[in-house]
Design a protein around this nucleic acid. Structure first.
Length: 305
DNA sequence: ACTGTAACCTGCAGGC
DNA sequence: TGCCTGCAGGTTACAG
């Protein structure tokens, strides 16, 4: 660990550990699942006993009608599948909420893969699975168990505080500099910490927070940001998220090819993980330090407090 | 109501 | 070689 974060001896090499799902990755998953799941009915389910996953079986007996996303949360719309007599819109709809956490992933096994070939060894990191009426299986794998599964009445997110108080989607056309500035002004916390809270804007994680603050020239520890700088930050947040989304298709492994190439996970980053290395803009040595217990990288020259 | 802190969890890297 | 320690991350519970 570096004593002062300055000087060449403070170099910390960034070790890539695999895709941490942030908004672009979650949106990519959503698009893939949207092509696979709607219309399928959940006939059975099981889950790891941890309360983080134990609600998964409550999706059984429901048809998946939609695959939506809010921030980093996947929202699968469910309708009771018991008989066709129930009129639509009776209010019994549920929602399967999935947060991928750090290491979570959703997978769809094709019907054919379950019938032929040798039986697959049980995956020790499987946390929940749902049988579909067409023979396929949807399952959730999460090594570190930072993910979360909930089945709630549609739209009732009281049990998930962050989702309940989630800020606007980054690309919501109604979100503008003035509104973003107002949201930032409502808190005295550090701007970086505030972004990670998901309240001013949804879907921003550690990587994109550092990148956008670097581009905007805003110190991550700032507790006040003016209107103009807030507008610039919003623009840069949209930029980094959109750029990542453009590469999202190559970020994820193909579900159906478990042995497939991991794909190109390289992401061009100017700031995150580059502590001790020269700033791409001014050449100063980037600082890396824990800010509110979250690793934060910034340029002490470009990003003044 | 708000703010800050610890906990959750496990593979991996680095030090000795 | 192998054990031990610390780190990474988003969210939540809890204390002040």
């Amino acid at each position: 660990m570096s004593p002062d974060g300055a000087g060449p001896e403070a170099v910390r090499t960034h070790r890539y550990r695999g895709p941490v799902p942030e908004l672009p990755e979650v949106e990519t998953v959503r698009r893939q699942l949207e092509a696979l799941l709607p219309g399928a009915t959940v006939t059975g389910a099981r889950a790891h006993p941890s309360p983080k996953f134990a609600e998964a079986p409550r999706a059984a007996g429901h048809r998946i009608d939609a695959v939506d996303r809010r921030g980093k949360y996947l929202l699968l719309g469910l309708t009771p599948a018991t008989g066709t007599t129930a009129p639509a819109g009776t209010g019994a709809e549920r929602e399967l909420v999935v947060h991928l956490g750090m290491t979570g992933g959703l997978h769809v096994d094709s019907a054919s893969s379950s019938g032929t070939g040798p039986p697959r060894a049980a995956d020790p990191y499987e946390r929940a699975s749902w049988d579909l009426d067409d023979g396929r299986r949807l399952w959730f794998r999460d090594v570190r168990r930072f993910g979360r599964i909930a089945v709630v009445p549609a739209g009732d997110h009281r049990g998930l505080p962050t989702l309940h108080h989630l800020g606007p989607e980054p690309f919501d056309p109604e979100l503008d500099a003035a509104g973003f500035h107002r949201a930032l002004q409502g808190s005295r916390r550090r701007i970086k910490t505030l972004l990670l809270s998901q309240r001013p804007i949804a879907g921003v994680g550690n990587i994109y927070a550092d990148e956008a603050l670097w581009r905007a020239g805003i110190h991550p520890g700032a507790r006040r940001v003016g209107l103009e700088r807030a507008g610039r930050l919003l623009g840069h947040l949209r930029e980094v998220l959109a750029e990542s989304l453009d590469h999202g298709g190559t970020t994820l492994r193909d579900y159906r090819a478990p042995d497939g190439a991991p794909g190109d996970n390289q992401r061009r980053l100017d700031c995150y993980g580059r502590g001790g290395r020269p700033c791409h803009r001014c050449g100063a040595t980037l600082a890396a330090r824990a800010l509110d217990q979250r690793t934060t990288t910034w340029c002490p020259r470009c990003q003044r407090n």
